[in-house]
């Protein structure tokens, strides 16, 4: 699958506060990609950078193979998003809101198409009501309609379940899954709830305090037997070829510094033995706990420290 989003070394400071610190990740076409982190971890800042609401301090963002800094309009015309709350013009009806944002996206949908979209999100028969009469869940559904009306390839939802009741959350989940499965859209989804990501996403990234903690396939990352191993060695090249020779995929490496890869906890002693035999010096080796445990410790340090 080709990467549809490539974010590299993204950093952003607000004054002295570092909001994003060297974040890199990629999203493949067709992914439901989860963005997991506590509130304030940098999820929204990253997403806002991707939607060009915030200018990155450094780093690059490429979407659909285009540079966001130079091809903003082209990228945004194929992207739909709900950033934080789904806010619309409260003094206008759902139909009018949808029509306005469709036209801003550069299309002129027919009345039928607009109504069809409102049917898809379950707002048919309420389309003439002013948005100020809507519940949070209805606004969220209208937000989804707005983000989909121009038939984008990529859809980004920032905390779509926020402020919704359980029924609302379940409805939104269904909608997102339908749009991924039925319409083949690539979806980026942020949440502070691991369970939500686990339920919907196939790939994910965890960020904390503006730094990337881990990125990978949800199924693997959430496999309790799996550990993320960070091996610090001055001879990364030799270590790299030794480890890949064992059929292990390196997920991240910095020359002369470290390598990072996933490994079953039980295989770690054998690997260290092998490295020693090869005469590859090891400065430090660190295996992280299972991801869930790790994430919970982030969100609630007192209980899981």
């Amino acid at each position: 699958m080709p990467a549809i989003v490539e974010v590299q070394h993204l950093s952003k400071k607000f004054g002295t506060f570092t909001a994003l610190d060297d974040i890199s990740f990629s999203v493949n076409e067709g992914d439901v990609y989860g963005f997991l982190g506590q509130n304030g971890a940098g999820k929204s800042t990253t997403i806002r950078c991707m939607m060009s609401l915030i200018k990155p301090g450094s780093g690059s963002i490429r979407i659909f193979g285009l540079d966001l800094a130079t091809s903003r309009k082209k990228i945004l015309s194929q992207t739909g998003a709900i950033i934080e709350r789904p806010d619309m013009y409260k003094y206008l009806s759902a139909f009018e809101n949808l029509s306005i944002f469709a036209r801003m996206s550069g299309i002129k949908p027919s009345r039928e198409k607009l109504l069809q979209m409102l049917t898809f999100v379950g707002l048919r028969n309420r389309e003439s009501d002013k948005v100020k009469t809507y519940s949070q869940g209805m606004k969220q559904r209208l937000g989804i309609a707005i983000s989909l009306i121009h038939d984008p390839r990529l859809v980004i939802f920032d905390e779509p379940a926020n402020g919704l009741d359980p029924q609302g959350i379940s409805d939104i989940r269904h909608l997102i899954l339908r749009m991924s499965r039925e319409q083949g859209k690539t979806v980026i989804l942020s949440s502070h709830l691991l369970s939500e990501i686990e339920m919907m996403a196939n790939r994910m990234i965890i960020i904390d305090k503006g730094k990337k903690i881990v990125e990978g396939e949800v199924a693997k990352l959430l496999d309790p037997a799996r550990s993320l191993v960070k091996l610090q060695t001055p001879e990364t090249e030799r270590a790299h070829s030794f480890i890949t020779g064992k059929g292990i995929r390196i997920s991240e490496s910095i020359n002369g510094e470290y390598l990072q890869f996933e490994l079953n906890r039980n295989d770690i002693p054998a690997l260290v033995g092998g490295l020693c035999q090869e005469g590859i010096p090891i400065r430090d080796i660190h295996a992280m706990h299972s991801l869930e445990h790790y994430f919970l410790s982030l969100t609630n340090p007192a209980a899981h420290g």
Binding site: M51, R72, L76, S77, T79, A81, I83, D87, G106, I146
Partner: peptide, 14 residues
């Protein structure tokens, strides 16, 4: 204030 600026600026408009 309404929050629509976010939405507006994610549209392909400079």
């Amino acid at each position: 204030n309404m929050g629509t600026l976010r939405l507006m600026l994610t549209k392909p408009v400079s």
